[in-house]
Design a protein around this nucleic acid. Structure first.
Lengths: 229, 229
DNA sequence: TTAGATTAGTGTATAAAATACAATAATTAA
DNA sequence: TTAATTATTGTATTTTATACACTAATCTAA
Protein backbone atom coordinates (compact mmCIF):
# COMPACT_ATOMS: atom_id res chain seq x y z
CA UNK A 1 0.00 0.00 0.00
CA UNK A 2 2.77 2.45 0.84
CA UNK A 3 4.76 1.54 -2.15
CA UNK A 4 1.67 2.02 -4.25
CA UNK A 5 1.06 5.56 -3.03
CA UNK A 6 3.96 6.89 -5.02
CA UNK A 7 1.92 6.31 -8.15
CA UNK A 8 -0.88 8.57 -7.04
CA UNK A 9 0.92 11.69 -8.12
CA UNK A 10 -0.38 12.09 -11.60
CA UNK A 11 -3.36 13.82 -13.08
CA UNK A 12 -5.49 13.26 -16.11
CA UNK A 13 -7.23 15.65 -18.33
CA UNK A 14 -9.75 15.51 -21.12
CA UNK A 15 -9.33 17.43 -24.34
CA UNK A 16 -12.16 17.92 -26.77
CA UNK A 17 -12.14 18.26 -30.49
CA UNK A 18 -15.48 19.92 -31.10
CA UNK A 19 -16.47 19.62 -34.73
CA UNK A 20 -18.98 21.83 -36.43
CA UNK A 21 -20.07 22.19 -40.03
CA UNK A 22 -20.88 25.58 -41.45
CA UNK A 23 -20.76 27.27 -44.83
CA UNK A 24 -19.89 23.96 -46.42
CA UNK A 25 -16.81 23.64 -44.31
CA UNK A 26 -15.73 21.44 -41.42
CA UNK A 27 -14.77 23.51 -38.38
CA UNK A 28 -13.17 22.98 -34.99
CA UNK A 29 -13.87 25.03 -31.90
CA UNK A 30 -10.67 26.38 -30.34
CA UNK A 31 -10.20 28.45 -27.22
CA UNK A 32 -7.78 31.26 -26.66
CA UNK A 33 -6.04 30.32 -23.45
CA UNK A 34 -6.42 32.90 -20.69
CA UNK A 35 -4.15 31.11 -18.21
CA UNK A 36 -0.80 29.43 -18.13
CA UNK A 37 0.62 27.18 -19.34
CA UNK A 38 0.58 28.40 -22.92
CA UNK A 39 -1.45 31.51 -22.03
CA UNK A 40 -2.27 33.47 -25.15
CA UNK A 41 -2.41 30.64 -27.68
CA UNK A 42 -5.24 28.91 -29.48
CA UNK A 43 -5.76 25.40 -28.12
CA UNK A 44 -8.22 22.57 -27.81
CA UNK A 45 -10.64 23.06 -24.94
CA UNK A 46 -9.96 20.71 -22.07
CA UNK A 47 -9.67 20.46 -18.32
CA UNK A 48 -8.25 18.36 -15.56
CA UNK A 49 -10.54 15.56 -14.51
CA UNK A 50 -11.86 15.89 -10.98
CA UNK A 51 -11.19 13.06 -8.62
CA UNK A 52 -14.88 12.34 -8.14
CA UNK A 53 -15.84 12.65 -11.78
CA UNK A 54 -16.21 9.88 -14.36
CA UNK A 55 -14.09 10.39 -17.43
CA UNK A 56 -16.97 10.74 -19.87
CA UNK A 57 -18.75 13.13 -17.52
CA UNK A 58 -15.68 15.27 -17.49
CA UNK A 59 -15.67 15.53 -21.27
CA UNK A 60 -19.35 16.40 -21.24
CA UNK A 61 -18.75 19.05 -18.60
CA UNK A 62 -16.06 20.73 -20.67
CA UNK A 63 -18.33 20.82 -23.67
CA UNK A 64 -21.24 22.10 -21.63
CA UNK A 65 -19.25 24.88 -19.96
CA UNK A 66 -18.17 26.06 -23.37
CA UNK A 67 -21.36 25.76 -25.34
CA UNK A 68 -24.20 25.22 -22.92
CA UNK A 69 -25.09 22.12 -24.88
CA UNK A 70 -26.04 18.75 -23.45
CA UNK A 71 -26.92 15.51 -25.21
CA UNK A 72 -24.28 15.98 -27.81
CA UNK A 73 -22.76 13.12 -29.76
CA UNK A 74 -19.37 12.36 -28.29
CA UNK A 75 -16.77 9.69 -28.77
CA UNK A 76 -13.46 8.89 -27.15
CA UNK A 77 -10.55 9.18 -29.56
CA UNK A 78 -7.33 8.10 -27.93
CA UNK A 79 -5.26 8.70 -24.82
CA UNK A 80 -2.01 10.58 -25.03
CA UNK A 81 0.55 9.89 -22.35
CA UNK A 82 4.06 10.95 -23.19
CA UNK A 83 5.98 11.76 -20.02
CA UNK A 84 6.85 15.30 -21.02
CA UNK A 85 3.65 16.30 -22.72
CA UNK A 86 2.57 18.68 -19.93
CA UNK A 87 4.90 21.22 -18.32
CA UNK A 88 3.28 21.11 -14.87
CA UNK A 89 3.66 17.43 -14.12
CA UNK A 90 2.59 14.03 -15.26
CA UNK A 91 -0.69 14.52 -17.01
CA UNK A 92 -2.11 12.12 -19.50
CA UNK A 93 -5.00 13.33 -21.53
CA UNK A 94 -7.95 11.44 -22.85
CA UNK A 95 -9.11 13.00 -26.08
CA UNK A 96 -12.74 13.15 -27.19
CA UNK A 97 -14.46 14.56 -30.19
CA UNK A 98 -17.99 15.81 -30.34
CA UNK A 99 -20.29 16.79 -33.15
CA UNK A 100 -22.42 19.86 -32.71
CA UNK A 101 -24.86 21.78 -34.82
CA UNK A 102 -23.27 25.18 -35.24
CA UNK A 103 -26.62 26.83 -35.72
CA UNK A 104 -27.97 25.55 -32.39
CA UNK A 105 -26.28 27.85 -29.95
CA UNK A 106 -23.91 30.66 -29.20
CA UNK A 107 -20.41 29.98 -27.97
CA UNK A 108 -19.54 31.25 -24.49
CA UNK A 109 -16.06 31.93 -23.30
CA UNK A 110 -15.66 30.02 -20.05
CA UNK A 111 -13.59 30.65 -16.97
CA UNK A 112 -10.46 29.20 -18.59
CA UNK A 113 -10.99 30.61 -22.06
CA UNK A 114 -10.55 34.24 -22.98
CA UNK A 115 -12.06 33.71 -26.38
CA UNK A 116 -13.64 30.90 -28.36
CA UNK A 117 -13.80 30.62 -32.11
CA UNK A 118 -14.59 28.23 -34.92
CA UNK A 119 -11.56 27.50 -37.05
CA UNK A 120 -11.80 25.97 -40.45
CA UNK A 121 -10.16 22.56 -40.52
CA UNK A 122 -8.01 23.76 -43.38
CA UNK A 123 -6.40 26.57 -41.40
CA UNK A 124 -5.53 25.34 -37.96
CA UNK A 125 -2.71 27.22 -36.25
CA UNK A 126 0.12 25.60 -34.36
CA UNK A 127 -1.38 24.42 -31.10
CA UNK A 128 0.26 23.87 -27.71
CA UNK A 129 0.91 20.51 -26.01
CA UNK A 130 0.29 17.65 -28.45
CA UNK A 131 -2.95 19.21 -29.62
CA UNK A 132 -2.11 19.15 -33.31
CA UNK A 133 -1.50 15.44 -33.06
CA UNK A 134 -4.76 14.98 -31.19
CA UNK A 135 -6.58 16.85 -33.92
CA UNK A 136 -5.08 14.58 -36.58
CA UNK A 137 -6.28 11.53 -34.67
CA UNK A 138 -9.70 13.12 -34.37
CA UNK A 139 -10.00 13.75 -38.08
CA UNK A 140 -9.07 10.19 -38.91
CA UNK A 141 -11.41 8.75 -36.34
CA UNK A 142 -14.24 10.88 -37.65
CA UNK A 143 -13.47 9.82 -41.21
CA UNK A 144 -13.76 6.15 -40.28
CA UNK A 145 -16.78 6.52 -38.11
CA UNK A 146 -18.85 8.70 -40.40
CA UNK A 147 -18.62 6.05 -43.10
CA UNK A 148 -20.08 3.30 -40.91
CA UNK A 149 -22.50 5.14 -38.66
CA UNK A 150 -25.00 7.85 -39.45
CA UNK A 151 -23.36 10.42 -37.18
CA UNK A 152 -22.86 12.99 -39.93
CA UNK A 153 -26.39 14.19 -39.32
CA UNK A 154 -25.31 15.38 -35.86
CA UNK A 155 -23.44 18.17 -37.63
CA UNK A 156 -26.42 19.35 -39.64
CA UNK A 157 -29.57 21.17 -38.60
CA UNK A 158 -32.69 19.02 -38.23
CA UNK A 159 -33.67 19.75 -41.80
CA UNK A 160 -31.06 19.71 -44.51
CA UNK A 161 -30.72 19.34 -48.23
CA UNK A 162 -29.05 16.47 -50.02
CA UNK A 163 -26.38 18.87 -51.17
CA UNK A 164 -25.69 19.84 -47.54
CA UNK A 165 -24.98 16.30 -46.55
CA UNK A 166 -22.93 15.62 -49.64
CA UNK A 167 -20.74 18.62 -48.87
CA UNK A 168 -20.39 17.41 -45.31
CA UNK A 169 -19.14 14.03 -46.47
CA UNK A 170 -16.86 15.68 -48.96
CA UNK A 171 -15.20 17.78 -46.28
CA UNK A 172 -14.77 14.86 -43.93
CA UNK A 173 -13.46 12.48 -46.59
CA UNK A 174 -11.51 15.20 -48.35
CA UNK A 175 -12.61 13.94 -51.76
CA UNK A 176 -15.32 14.95 -54.22
CA UNK A 177 -18.29 12.66 -54.64
CA UNK A 178 -20.53 12.06 -57.62
CA UNK A 179 -23.86 13.74 -57.02
CA UNK A 180 -26.14 11.15 -58.59
CA UNK A 181 -24.37 8.16 -57.12
CA UNK A 182 -24.21 9.70 -53.67
CA UNK A 183 -27.92 10.44 -53.65
CA UNK A 184 -28.81 7.03 -55.00
CA UNK A 185 -26.89 5.29 -52.25
CA UNK A 186 -28.08 7.58 -49.49
CA UNK A 187 -31.75 7.47 -50.47
CA UNK A 188 -31.64 3.71 -51.06
CA UNK A 189 -31.07 3.20 -47.33
CA UNK A 190 -34.48 4.72 -46.70
CA UNK A 191 -33.28 6.71 -43.72
CA UNK A 192 -34.30 10.15 -44.91
CA UNK A 193 -37.75 11.64 -44.50
CA UNK A 194 -38.82 14.19 -47.07
CA UNK A 195 -40.03 17.09 -44.94
CA UNK A 196 -42.32 18.32 -47.69
CA UNK A 197 -40.68 21.72 -47.53
CA UNK A 198 -38.05 23.36 -49.64
CA UNK A 199 -35.47 26.02 -49.17
CA UNK A 200 -36.74 29.52 -49.69
CA UNK A 201 -35.11 32.80 -50.57
CA UNK A 202 -32.33 31.17 -52.51
CA UNK A 203 -31.36 32.59 -55.89
CA UNK A 204 -31.81 29.32 -57.73
CA UNK A 205 -34.04 26.28 -57.78
CA UNK A 206 -34.80 25.52 -54.12
CA UNK A 207 -33.77 22.15 -52.75
CA UNK A 208 -36.02 19.82 -50.84
CA UNK A 209 -35.44 19.54 -47.09
CA UNK A 210 -34.99 16.15 -45.45
CA UNK A 211 -34.80 14.84 -41.91
CA UNK A 212 -32.86 11.83 -40.67
CA UNK A 213 -35.18 9.04 -39.53
CA UNK A 214 -33.66 7.95 -36.23
CA UNK A 215 -36.44 5.50 -35.37
CA UNK A 216 -36.20 3.76 -38.71
CA UNK A 217 -32.46 3.48 -38.22
CA UNK A 218 -32.88 1.90 -34.77
CA UNK A 219 -35.32 -0.64 -36.13
CA UNK A 220 -33.12 -1.44 -39.11
CA UNK A 221 -30.01 -2.15 -37.04
CA UNK A 222 -32.11 -4.44 -34.89
CA UNK A 223 -32.62 -6.44 -38.08
CA UNK A 224 -28.91 -6.53 -38.85
CA UNK A 225 -28.73 -3.55 -41.19
CA UNK A 226 -25.42 -1.80 -41.34
CA UNK A 227 -24.98 1.77 -42.46
CA UNK A 228 -22.32 2.49 -45.02
CA UNK A 229 -21.47 5.40 -47.25
CA UNK B 1 -0.44 26.07 -8.91
CA UNK B 2 -1.56 25.15 -5.42
CA UNK B 3 -5.10 24.66 -6.46
CA UNK B 4 -3.88 22.46 -9.25
CA UNK B 5 -1.95 20.14 -6.94
CA UNK B 6 -5.12 18.56 -5.64
CA UNK B 7 -5.55 16.91 -9.00
CA UNK B 8 -2.24 15.10 -8.80
CA UNK B 9 -3.63 12.34 -6.63
CA UNK B 10 -4.62 9.86 -9.21
CA UNK B 11 -2.85 7.01 -10.92
CA UNK B 12 -3.14 5.37 -14.27
CA UNK B 13 -2.63 1.85 -15.30
CA UNK B 14 -2.39 -0.10 -18.50
CA UNK B 15 -4.26 -3.33 -19.07
CA UNK B 16 -3.42 -5.64 -21.91
CA UNK B 17 -5.59 -7.96 -23.88
CA UNK B 18 -3.04 -10.35 -25.33
CA UNK B 19 -4.51 -12.30 -28.20
CA UNK B 20 -3.13 -15.56 -29.47
CA UNK B 21 -4.36 -18.08 -32.00
CA UNK B 22 -3.88 -21.77 -31.44
CA UNK B 23 -5.65 -24.98 -32.41
CA UNK B 24 -7.95 -22.99 -34.63
CA UNK B 25 -9.15 -20.93 -31.73
CA UNK B 26 -8.71 -17.32 -30.62
CA UNK B 27 -7.19 -17.13 -27.14
CA UNK B 28 -6.49 -14.49 -24.51
CA UNK B 29 -3.67 -14.59 -22.01
CA UNK B 30 -4.93 -14.17 -18.44
CA UNK B 31 -2.98 -14.01 -15.21
CA UNK B 32 -3.92 -15.47 -11.89
CA UNK B 33 -3.54 -12.59 -9.48
CA UNK B 34 -1.05 -13.23 -6.71
CA UNK B 35 -1.69 -9.96 -4.91
CA UNK B 36 -4.57 -7.85 -3.73
CA UNK B 37 -6.88 -6.40 -4.82
CA UNK B 38 -8.75 -9.36 -6.25
CA UNK B 39 -6.00 -11.80 -5.25
CA UNK B 40 -6.82 -15.27 -6.48
CA UNK B 41 -8.81 -14.40 -9.58
CA UNK B 42 -8.06 -14.58 -13.30
CA UNK B 43 -7.59 -11.12 -14.75
CA UNK B 44 -6.10 -9.17 -17.60
CA UNK B 45 -2.41 -8.48 -17.12
CA UNK B 46 -1.69 -4.86 -16.32
CA UNK B 47 0.26 -2.55 -14.11
CA UNK B 48 0.40 0.97 -12.81
CA UNK B 49 2.20 3.34 -15.11
CA UNK B 50 5.41 4.71 -13.68
CA UNK B 51 5.70 8.45 -13.43
CA UNK B 52 8.68 8.53 -15.76
CA UNK B 53 7.31 6.08 -18.30
CA UNK B 54 5.49 6.83 -21.53
CA UNK B 55 2.09 5.19 -21.77
CA UNK B 56 2.93 2.97 -24.73
CA UNK B 57 6.21 1.94 -23.12
CA UNK B 58 4.32 0.86 -20.08
CA UNK B 59 2.10 -1.41 -22.13
CA UNK B 60 5.15 -2.86 -23.85
CA UNK B 61 6.82 -3.44 -20.50
CA UNK B 62 3.83 -5.38 -19.16
CA UNK B 63 3.82 -7.57 -22.22
CA UNK B 64 7.56 -8.10 -22.08
CA UNK B 65 7.60 -9.02 -18.39
CA UNK B 66 4.98 -11.63 -19.05
CA UNK B 67 6.17 -13.12 -22.29
CA UNK B 68 9.71 -11.94 -22.89
CA UNK B 69 8.57 -10.71 -26.28
CA UNK B 70 9.46 -7.39 -27.86
CA UNK B 71 8.40 -5.91 -31.19
CA UNK B 72 4.90 -7.17 -30.87
CA UNK B 73 1.95 -5.64 -32.67
CA UNK B 74 0.08 -3.49 -30.18
CA UNK B 75 -2.78 -1.06 -30.36
CA UNK B 76 -4.53 1.17 -27.88
CA UNK B 77 -8.17 0.21 -27.37
CA UNK B 78 -9.89 2.66 -25.07
CA UNK B 79 -9.51 4.32 -21.70
CA UNK B 80 -11.77 3.35 -18.84
CA UNK B 81 -12.26 5.92 -16.14
CA UNK B 82 -15.26 5.32 -13.91
CA UNK B 83 -14.65 6.83 -10.47
CA UNK B 84 -15.18 3.61 -8.56
CA UNK B 85 -13.53 1.17 -10.94
CA UNK B 86 -10.52 0.56 -8.68
CA UNK B 87 -10.84 -0.13 -4.93
CA UNK B 88 -7.54 1.52 -3.97
CA UNK B 89 -8.14 4.99 -5.33
CA UNK B 90 -8.71 6.90 -8.48
CA UNK B 91 -7.13 4.85 -11.19
CA UNK B 92 -8.02 5.14 -14.83
CA UNK B 93 -6.77 2.44 -17.08
CA UNK B 94 -5.67 2.63 -20.67
CA UNK B 95 -6.39 -0.66 -22.39
CA UNK B 96 -4.23 -2.13 -25.12
CA UNK B 97 -4.41 -5.29 -27.13
CA UNK B 98 -1.50 -7.12 -28.66
CA UNK B 99 -1.19 -9.94 -31.13
CA UNK B 100 1.35 -12.63 -30.46
CA UNK B 101 2.38 -15.86 -32.10
CA UNK B 102 1.61 -18.51 -29.50
CA UNK B 103 4.28 -20.81 -30.87
CA UNK B 104 7.04 -18.22 -30.45
CA UNK B 105 7.69 -18.38 -26.75
CA UNK B 106 6.87 -19.77 -23.36
CA UNK B 107 4.79 -17.79 -20.92
CA UNK B 108 6.48 -16.73 -17.69
CA UNK B 109 4.62 -15.90 -14.54
CA UNK B 110 5.86 -12.47 -13.47
CA UNK B 111 6.24 -10.84 -10.10
CA UNK B 112 2.58 -9.93 -9.95
CA UNK B 113 1.19 -13.10 -11.49
CA UNK B 114 1.04 -16.44 -9.77
CA UNK B 115 0.07 -18.20 -12.96
CA UNK B 116 -0.51 -17.34 -16.58
CA UNK B 117 -2.70 -19.21 -19.02
CA UNK B 118 -4.25 -19.00 -22.45
CA UNK B 119 -8.03 -18.95 -22.24
CA UNK B 120 -10.21 -19.63 -25.21
CA UNK B 121 -12.22 -16.56 -26.14
CA UNK B 122 -15.34 -18.67 -25.86
CA UNK B 123 -14.81 -19.52 -22.19
CA UNK B 124 -13.68 -16.45 -20.35
CA UNK B 125 -14.44 -16.44 -16.64
CA UNK B 126 -15.85 -13.49 -14.73
CA UNK B 127 -12.98 -11.06 -14.39
CA UNK B 128 -12.32 -8.42 -11.73
CA UNK B 129 -12.51 -4.63 -12.19
CA UNK B 130 -14.10 -3.78 -15.55
CA UNK B 131 -11.95 -6.36 -17.33
CA UNK B 132 -14.83 -8.17 -18.99
CA UNK B 133 -15.95 -4.88 -20.51
CA UNK B 134 -12.40 -4.18 -21.66
CA UNK B 135 -12.24 -7.56 -23.30
CA UNK B 136 -15.46 -6.88 -25.18
CA UNK B 137 -14.03 -3.63 -26.48
CA UNK B 138 -10.87 -5.45 -27.50
CA UNK B 139 -12.75 -8.08 -29.48
CA UNK B 140 -14.71 -5.46 -31.35
CA UNK B 141 -11.67 -3.37 -32.06
CA UNK B 142 -9.82 -6.39 -33.36
CA UNK B 143 -12.78 -7.34 -35.53
CA UNK B 144 -12.78 -3.91 -37.18
CA UNK B 145 -9.06 -3.66 -37.54
CA UNK B 146 -8.38 -7.12 -38.91
CA UNK B 147 -10.75 -6.41 -41.79
CA UNK B 148 -8.89 -3.30 -42.92
CA UNK B 149 -5.29 -4.05 -42.06
CA UNK B 150 -3.24 -7.19 -42.54
CA UNK B 151 -2.61 -7.67 -38.83
CA UNK B 152 -4.09 -11.16 -38.69
CA UNK B 153 -0.74 -12.51 -39.82
CA UNK B 154 0.75 -11.35 -36.51
CA UNK B 155 -1.16 -14.19 -34.87
CA UNK B 156 0.18 -16.89 -37.18
CA UNK B 157 3.61 -18.44 -37.47
CA UNK B 158 5.77 -17.14 -40.32
CA UNK B 159 4.53 -19.90 -42.57
CA UNK B 160 0.90 -20.83 -42.57
CA UNK B 161 -1.69 -22.51 -44.73
CA UNK B 162 -4.66 -20.84 -46.33
CA UNK B 163 -6.89 -22.85 -44.05
CA UNK B 164 -5.04 -21.48 -41.01
CA UNK B 165 -5.75 -17.95 -41.97
CA UNK B 166 -9.31 -18.67 -42.90
CA UNK B 167 -9.91 -20.21 -39.47
CA UNK B 168 -8.28 -17.19 -37.88
CA UNK B 169 -10.67 -14.84 -39.67
CA UNK B 170 -13.58 -17.08 -38.83
CA UNK B 171 -12.79 -16.93 -35.11
CA UNK B 172 -12.33 -13.20 -35.11
CA UNK B 173 -15.44 -12.47 -37.18
CA UNK B 174 -17.44 -15.22 -35.53
CA UNK B 175 -18.89 -16.33 -38.84
CA UNK B 176 -18.07 -19.06 -41.32
CA UNK B 177 -16.52 -18.08 -44.63
CA UNK B 178 -16.72 -19.73 -48.02
CA UNK B 179 -13.43 -21.46 -48.75
CA UNK B 180 -13.20 -20.70 -52.45
CA UNK B 181 -14.31 -17.10 -52.19
CA UNK B 182 -12.04 -16.41 -49.24
CA UNK B 183 -8.99 -17.77 -51.06
CA UNK B 184 -9.85 -15.97 -54.26
CA UNK B 185 -10.04 -12.60 -52.48
CA UNK B 186 -6.97 -13.19 -50.34
CA UNK B 187 -4.76 -14.40 -53.17
CA UNK B 188 -6.02 -11.66 -55.51
CA UNK B 189 -4.32 -9.06 -53.29
CA UNK B 190 -0.99 -10.66 -54.15
CA UNK B 191 0.32 -10.36 -50.61
CA UNK B 192 1.11 -14.01 -50.03
CA UNK B 193 4.32 -15.72 -51.06
CA UNK B 194 4.16 -19.42 -51.77
CA UNK B 195 6.99 -20.83 -49.68
CA UNK B 196 7.36 -23.84 -51.95
CA UNK B 197 6.91 -26.14 -48.98
CA UNK B 198 3.97 -28.08 -47.71
CA UNK B 199 2.83 -29.44 -44.41
CA UNK B 200 4.23 -32.81 -43.54
CA UNK B 201 3.12 -35.60 -41.26
CA UNK B 202 -0.52 -34.76 -41.60
CA UNK B 203 -3.02 -37.53 -42.14
CA UNK B 204 -4.46 -36.04 -45.28
CA UNK B 205 -3.39 -34.10 -48.34
CA UNK B 206 -0.77 -31.63 -47.12
CA UNK B 207 -1.45 -27.94 -47.60
CA UNK B 208 0.93 -25.46 -49.15
CA UNK B 209 2.68 -23.04 -46.80
CA UNK B 210 2.60 -19.31 -47.44
CA UNK B 211 4.30 -16.23 -46.02
CA UNK B 212 2.92 -12.72 -45.77
CA UNK B 213 4.80 -10.33 -48.06
CA UNK B 214 5.36 -7.30 -45.85
CA UNK B 215 7.50 -5.43 -48.37
CA UNK B 216 4.93 -5.81 -51.11
CA UNK B 217 2.30 -4.53 -48.72
CA UNK B 218 4.35 -1.45 -47.86
CA UNK B 219 4.88 -0.66 -51.50
CA UNK B 220 1.21 -1.20 -52.34
CA UNK B 221 -0.08 1.16 -49.66
CA UNK B 222 2.33 3.77 -50.97
CA UNK B 223 0.39 3.51 -54.21
CA UNK B 224 -2.96 3.94 -52.46
CA UNK B 225 -3.85 0.28 -52.06
CA UNK B 226 -6.13 -0.51 -49.19
CA UNK B 227 -6.36 -3.94 -47.61
CA UNK B 228 -9.80 -5.37 -47.09
CA UNK B 229 -11.19 -8.78 -46.25
C1' DT C 1 -2.35 -53.34 -51.26
C1' DT C 2 -6.18 -51.32 -51.00
C1' DA C 3 -10.28 -48.93 -49.30
C1' DG C 4 -11.70 -45.37 -46.39
C1' DA C 5 -11.08 -41.11 -44.06
C1' DT C 6 -9.61 -36.53 -44.21
C1' DT C 7 -8.40 -32.12 -45.77
C1' DA C 8 -6.51 -29.37 -50.04
C1' DG C 9 -7.27 -27.30 -54.11
C1' DT C 10 -9.86 -25.30 -57.88
C1' DG C 11 -13.73 -22.40 -61.62
C1' DT C 12 -17.94 -20.69 -63.33
C1' DA C 13 -22.34 -18.64 -63.56
C1' DT C 14 -25.36 -15.27 -61.32
C1' DA C 15 -26.50 -11.40 -58.58
C1' DA C 16 -25.42 -7.17 -56.51
C1' DA C 17 -22.99 -2.98 -56.16
C1' DA C 18 -20.10 0.72 -57.90
C1' DT C 19 -19.13 3.78 -61.39
C1' DA C 20 -19.34 6.98 -65.26
C1' DC C 21 -21.88 10.24 -67.23
C1' DA C 22 -25.50 15.02 -68.99
C1' DA C 23 -29.92 16.92 -69.84
C1' DT C 24 -34.01 19.23 -67.93
C1' DA C 25 -36.33 21.93 -63.95
C1' DA C 26 -37.13 25.69 -60.69
C1' DT C 27 -35.98 29.69 -58.82
C1' DT C 28 -33.90 34.73 -58.45
C1' DA C 29 -31.65 38.76 -60.38
C1' DA C 30 -30.91 41.92 -63.78
C1' DT D 1 -37.59 37.92 -70.67
C1' DT D 2 -33.06 36.25 -70.34
C1' DA D 3 -29.12 34.81 -67.76
C1' DA D 4 -27.34 32.68 -63.83
C1' DT D 5 -27.47 29.25 -60.48
C1' DT D 6 -28.34 25.06 -58.24
C1' DA D 7 -31.68 20.79 -58.05
C1' DT D 8 -33.22 16.70 -59.78
C1' DT D 9 -33.20 12.43 -62.24
C1' DG D 10 -31.71 7.29 -65.07
C1' DT D 11 -29.15 4.04 -67.67
C1' DA D 12 -25.45 1.36 -69.36
C1' DT D 13 -21.03 -0.65 -68.01
C1' DT D 14 -17.73 -2.47 -64.99
C1' DT D 15 -16.44 -4.46 -60.86
C1' DT D 16 -17.21 -7.15 -56.96
C1' DA D 17 -19.65 -10.58 -54.20
C1' DT D 18 -21.90 -14.80 -53.89
C1' DA D 19 -23.35 -19.57 -54.42
C1' DC D 20 -21.94 -23.85 -55.23
C1' DA D 21 -19.27 -29.45 -55.79
C1' DC D 22 -15.94 -32.28 -57.61
C1' DT D 23 -11.08 -34.15 -57.91
C1' DA D 24 -6.32 -34.61 -55.56
C1' DA D 25 -3.01 -36.01 -52.11
C1' DT D 26 -1.81 -37.98 -48.06
C1' DC D 27 -2.34 -41.26 -43.96
C1' DT D 28 -4.44 -45.18 -41.47
C1' DA D 29 -6.19 -49.48 -40.79
C1' DA D 30 -7.90 -53.69 -42.51
Amino acid sequence: MNVIKQFFRSAFSVDSVIFGFDEGDLKVLLIYRGADPYKGTWALPGDLVRLDEDLDDSARRVLNELTGLTNVYMDQIHTFGKVERHPLGRVITVAYYSLVKVSDYKVNASSWAKDVKWHSISSIPKLPFDHNEILEYAKNKLKDKVRHQPIGFELLPKEFTLTDIQHLYESVFEIELDKRNFRKKLLAMGLLIDSGFSQNAVAHRPARLYRFDKKKYQSLIQKGFSFEL
